[in-house]
Computed example of a mutant assay.
Amino acid sequence: MHVESGRNRGFALGSVSAAFGLGGFTGPLLGGAILSATGDWRAPLVVFGGIGLVILLMVLVLVPKSVTEVGRMQIPDASSSSATTNGLRFLNRRVVCSVFVAIAGGFAIYGYLGLYPTYLREALGFTPSESGLAASMFGIGALGALVGGAIADRVDQRLLNMTGLLAIMALGVAIFGFSTPVPVQMIFSALLGAAFSGIVVTNTSTLMQRSVDVKYVGRVSGLMIAAMYIPASASGYFVTSMRDSFGWQTAGIIQLTLIPIIGLVAMAAMGKTPARTNP
C-alpha cells in the first residue's frame, strides 16, 4: 500500500495544482460578487479568511497523521523506507537541478502574471473585463495538472519537464510576438497555465519528492515552494525594467523565453532519471 500510493504521487500532486488553478479562476469572480452584494471591500477578505479557517479545522480533524511523512515513520513497517532512496541524500543532484527549474519557472511565470493584464490593455487595447477574462484562463489551464500528474507517474520526468519549459517558451513568443484577439489570448493563457501548473509545477514537485527518502518529503516540498516563490517576488520589477527599456513585446519574450532556458540547462545536467524505487 505504501509503494502503490507512491506510484500515483504525480496524480495526487496534480489534483492539488488543479484545485489551486480552479481557485485562481473562481476566486476573483466570487470576490467580485461579494463586493457587489455588500458594497464593502472588506467583506470578500472576511469570507475567504473564514473559509480558510474552516478548511484548516477540517484538515486537523479529518486527515489522519499516517498520511504524512511523520506519521509513516511511526508505523512499524515503515522501517523499510527509512533508508535513503537510491543512495541519495536530501540535497542530491536531482533535487538541486529541480530547484533551478522551480526558480526559473516561478520567476518567469509570476512576473508574467503580474503584468499580463496591463500588457493586454496598454499594448493590445483590451478592455479591463477582456483583460481579466484572458488572464483568468490561466487558472482553467491549471486544471490540466490532473493529466500532467498522471503522465508524470509513467514517463521520464526529466523529459516531461523539458517539454513543459519548451511549451512555455513557445507560448511566450505567441503571446507577446503577435497582436491577437481576445479568444486567441484566452487560449494561449489557458495553454500557459497547463504548461506551467499542469506540467512544470506538478512534475518538479513530484520529481523532488521521489528523489529523497520519505522522511525528507516535507522538507523538500518546502524547498520547492521557497525556490519558486522567493525569487518570483522580484520578477515583477524585472519585467517592468525590461518593458521600460525595450517595450512590451521584447520584455515579454525575454521573460517567458530566455528565463526558462535556466530550467532546460538544469534538466540536461540532471541526466536520465533512474527507475523509481522510492515511495
Rank of each mutant, 00 (worst) to 15 (best):
V61S: 09
P64G: 12
I75S: 14
A78E: 06
L60W: 11
V59Q: 13
D77N: 08
D77R: 13
R93G: 07
A83L: 10
E69C: 09
S66H: 05
L60T: 02
L88I: 04
M58D: 07
S98V: 00
T85M: 05
L53Y: 04
R72T: 06
M73P: 05
M58P: 02
I75M: 15
N86V: 09
A78Q: 07
T84P: 05
S80T: 06
V70W: 07
C97G: 04
K65A: 12
L53W: 04
L56V: 06
R89T: 01
I55A: 15
S66N: 01
S82M: 15
N92K: 03
L53N: 13
P64T: 13
V54I: 14
E69N: 05
R89Y: 01
Q74M: 06
C97V: 02
V67A: 12
V54R: 12
V96S: 09
G87A: 10
M58H: 08
P76I: 15
L56R: 08
N92T: 05
L88E: 01
V63Y: 03
M58T: 07
G52V: 01
S80P: 03
P64S: 15
G52F: 00
T84M: 05
G71L: 01
V67N: 13
C97I: 01
D77V: 06
V95A: 11
S81M: 15
M58L: 07
G52D: 03
V70N: 14
T85A: 15
S98K: 00
L91W: 02
V96K: 02
F90K: 11
V61E: 02
S98I: 00
K65I: 06
T84K: 10
V96M: 11
I55E: 12
M58W: 00
K65F: 03
S81R: 12
T68W: 10
S79F: 01
M73H: 12
L62C: 12
N86Q: 14
V95F: 12
T84L: 11
L60D: 00
G87E: 08
L62Q: 04
G52Y: 01
T84F: 02
D77M: 09
G52H: 03
